[in-house]
Amino acid sequence: MPQATADLFSSPCLQFKGSMVPLTTLELLYFEPDKFSEELREKVKQAPNLFHNLPIVVGLEKLAEAHSPLDFSLIQTLCEQEGIRLIGVRTDAPEQTSAAQTAGLAVFQPSRGTRNAEAETPVQEPAPSAATETGRDEAQPQRVANRVITTPVRSGQQVYAPGGDLIVLAPVSAGAEILADGNIHVYAPLRGRALAGVQGNASARIFCQSLEAELVSVAGQYKISEDLQGEHWKQAAQICLDGEKLTIKAM
């Protein structure tokens, strides 16, 4: 028997749950307000729907002058002007942390994945397993948290494989979104959005039987449908990063 409303009110109204929320990161190499605005506007113009009201985090791992505190209020305002919502800063530098907190922003710790990637040489070894790449906690045994989906992922649905690969054995519809910390495999048409390496794993790849996607992204580098039209459209394809550049190859 479902709980009556009266019973409901006598129970707690909130609870905490651990969860992994995928967020787009804006990596800042240096900060120059006019140039920042201009480049941001350019990016937003390419995919207005993608950026509209998009919550983002500024990542400072690659910032040149890592220790002179940034004007986060200004960065926030500039983002807002482009319809983007800056919600936090990813850093472990104490100066930036206090500057971010003063601006009322949340502070995130850099994930091991991104720091490792930085420590490594830019040219990555041929794909180490997703588990070691994205291992988040040293105390955890290295178990690959792959996720297998056997039914269609429909418009409006979102499926995420934290810490591993996502394997989908059915179509991914337009309007659906699939995400993984590791690789994404779709053994059917990929018509929605697919984001691999969402925690920054630059060696993640996307494989699909028929590339008809609205968007593909690896470690934050993305291409939208328009840019995917061409020789690989509706063909079996793999998508991976070649340096900073997202490339599509036949499969």
């Binding site: 269609p152 429909r154 418009s155 519809s173 309007g175």
Partner: peptide, 24 residues
């Protein structure tokens, strides 16, 4: 077709059968 796709997703995740882990 897009709206039907959405409804199919809801049937698959929010129906009583889905919530109770019964046959879809």
């Amino acid at each position: 077709v897009r709206d039907s796709d959405r409804i199919l997703g809801i049937l698959h995740s929010k129906s009583r059968r889905a919530e109770m882990g019964l046959d879809p």
